[in-house]
Amino acid sequence: MTTLESAGISVELPNGWEGGVRTRVDPAPVAPGVQLASTGHSAATAHMANFALPSDRADFGGGAVELMNSNHIFMSLVEFDADSAGTALFADQGVPQLSTIDFDPYALQRVIHGQCGLQRFFTVAGRPFCLYVVLGREDNRGPLVSQCNAVLRSLRIT
């Protein structure tokens, strides 16, 4: 196992997984009234995957998900502006656990044949996050979701 630790995020990655955490300041709004981080606030994005991640990838996996095969998992944890904590969208508290029925091919930012995904919004330690997960093959959800949940059980946010 490898420990990924940065920006108040710590997670144990199983053998064969890789990931990284980067921070950003002052991004553009992602929707009217919703920003990833406000002026002067540093927000984190963590990527975790059971395949080799390209160095050039977007917050929600653009550049990586196109490389996935049927056994691959891509997980992105994107922090939003602190003012979003406590809003209805981020009302769930704690790191979520996932179920196979949570995944849908139309939950992807861009539909790629065979893949499925989900988004979960939640708050931990006053920090609002979106968890975005893509599975390489919809009909392979069971074992892939088990791997996701093992990673999520090790996730610590301070």
Score class of each variant (00 low, 15 high):
residue 8 G to L: 07
residue 131 L to Y: 10
residue 133 V to Q: 10
residue 74 F to K: 12
residue 34 V to M: 15
residue 4 L to I: 11
residue 149 N to H: 04
residue 131 L to I: 03
residue 4 L to Q: 06
residue 121 F to L: 06
residue 72 H to E: 10
residue 100 T to V: 14
residue 64 A to G: 09
residue 107 A to S: 12
residue 87 T to D: 10
residue 127 R to S: 05
residue 14 P to I: 00
residue 107 A to L: 06
residue 146 S to M: 05
residue 45 T to H: 04
residue 139 D to T: 14
residue 91 A to C: 07
residue 93 Q to I: 13
residue 66 E to Y: 00
residue 80 F to T: 00
residue 26 D to N: 13
residue 112 I to Y: 11
residue 135 L to Q: 05
residue 72 H to Q: 14
residue 138 E to L: 09
residue 97 Q to H: 00
residue 63 G to Q: 04
residue 49 A to S: 11
residue 92 D to P: 08
residue 20 G to I: 00
residue 125 A to L: 05
residue 30 V to G: 11
residue 36 L to R: 14
residue 100 T to N: 04
residue 127 R to H: 06
residue 139 D to P: 01
residue 77 L to P: 05
residue 59 D to H: 12
residue 78 V to M: 01
residue 68 M to I: 06
residue 39 T to L: 13
residue 104 D to G: 03
residue 4 L to N: 03
residue 123 T to G: 04
residue 98 L to K: 01
residue 149 N to D: 13
residue 18 E to K: 05
residue 150 A to W: 00
residue 49 A to C: 02
residue 29 P to W: 09
residue 9 I to L: 15
residue 106 Y to I: 03
residue 134 V to I: 14
residue 134 V to H: 00
residue 120 R to K: 15
residue 145 V to C: 05
residue 40 G to H: 08
residue 48 M to K: 07
residue 136 G to A: 07
residue 10 S to C: 14
residue 41 H to F: 06
residue 10 S to F: 01
residue 15 N to M: 03
residue 15 N to R: 11
residue 89 L to Y: 01
residue 25 V to F: 07
residue 131 L to S: 04
residue 35 Q to G: 12
residue 151 V to D: 03
residue 127 R to A: 05
residue 50 N to T: 07
residue 48 M to T: 01
residue 106 Y to A: 10
residue 156 R to N: 11
residue 36 L to H: 05
residue 33 G to L: 02
residue 112 I to N: 05
residue 149 N to F: 02
residue 68 M to C: 08
residue 119 Q to H: 12
residue 49 A to Y: 06
residue 31 A to P: 01
residue 11 V to H: 04
residue 57 R to W: 14
residue 139 D to I: 03
residue 127 R to Y: 09
residue 87 T to C: 05
residue 117 G to H: 08
residue 105 P to C: 10
residue 130 C to T: 15
residue 126 G to V: 09
residue 36 L to I: 09
residue 39 T to R: 10
residue 155 L to Q: 03
residue 54 P to S: 08
residue 80 F to M: 10
residue 59 D to T: 08
residue 57 R to E: 12
residue 20 G to F: 03
residue 144 L to Y: 01
residue 104 D to A: 03
residue 96 P to T: 04
residue 150 A to M: 02
residue 58 A to W: 12
residue 40 G to R: 06
residue 35 Q to Y: 14
residue 108 L to Q: 06
residue 56 D to K: 09
residue 48 M to Y: 01
residue 150 A to P: 00
residue 147 Q to K: 08
residue 39 T to D: 13
residue 114 G to P: 01
residue 80 F to D: 07
residue 82 A to V: 06
residue 73 I to Q: 08
residue 74 F to W: 13
residue 61 G to M: 09
residue 129 F to M: 06
residue 105 P to H: 04
residue 97 Q to E: 13
residue 83 D to N: 07
residue 85 A to S: 15
residue 139 D to C: 08
residue 18 E to I: 00
residue 50 N to R: 03
residue 33 G to F: 12
residue 63 G to C: 12
residue 40 G to E: 09
residue 76 S to I: 02
residue 17 W to R: 00
residue 125 A to K: 07
residue 78 V to H: 12
residue 36 L to A: 03
residue 23 T to I: 08
residue 52 A to K: 13
residue 83 D to V: 14
residue 144 L to E: 02
residue 1 M to E: 15
residue 61 G to K: 13
residue 149 N to K: 02
residue 25 V to T: 15
residue 98 L to I: 02
residue 133 V to Y: 04
residue 145 V to P: 03
residue 36 L to E: 12
residue 134 V to S: 05
residue 119 Q to N: 15
residue 24 R to T: 05
